[in-house]
Amino acid sequence: MSTLSERETRDAAPHRIGLWHAGVVVSTKTESPTGRSIVLDVPGWGGNIAGQHADLRLTAADGYQAVRSYSIASVSNGDRVELAVDRLPTGEVSPYLVDELRPGDQLELRGPLGGWFVWTPSLPGAVQLIGGGSGIVPLMAMIRSHTASGSDAPFRLLYSVRSPDDAFFRSELDTPTPGLDVTWLYTRVAPEGWGRPPGRITVDDLAGSAFAASLSPAVFVCGPTGFVESVATALVALGHDPHKVKTERFGGA
């Protein structure tokens, strides 16, 4: 029986996403007191669609390695990647990324990863985005993809943050964008005169500001695990089809 020799098998083109790429930091930007965005040039990356993430690998001088996943805020078909990272006080990697990393520093990235929590301009129909804290990051990529493509799919964003200062991408989100409606929710401190008292997102917030279940929107929810699970439960209680609700949890906070 004829089979591929071992040599031929091993010489097969490597699968692109399983590879680690060396990336170089191009720029960083403070987004909030605890978070910043980081633009990297990653030769060989080859682009990503909205909602995907990357694994980052850091190697210490003694060889110890740490791998963490971060959502991608940018959409492109090139080698530029923008991440945005919130510092977790007990984190092993995020304090370095937020406080220490400088332009010119190198990081290893693997990706783009994940084909499920994604939006592409070819998808028709209304889209409801619901983000908590740095859960805005993959949703920002969807908003940017929506804008860049000229998609006429109606978009709405509910963005829950602790206080006005904690918002990522504030100026971009405050710039009026056709086809995008943004609702801010504050959990601890709201701007003076804000109609809604500070508090966690409720069924009433969803009923009042999100697309109704009767419109059958595609819903993307991203944030800390507790946030995502309370929102997903509330959406189903409001009649949303669980199959139309996609979630991404990033654990603590």
Binding site: S69, G111, L113, G114, W116, F117, R249, F250
Partner: peptide, 8 residues
């Protein structure tokens, strides 16, 4: 977390 994290 959820299964998205298994992609890598």
């Amino acid at each position: 977390v959820d299964g998205n994290s298994l992609a890598g």
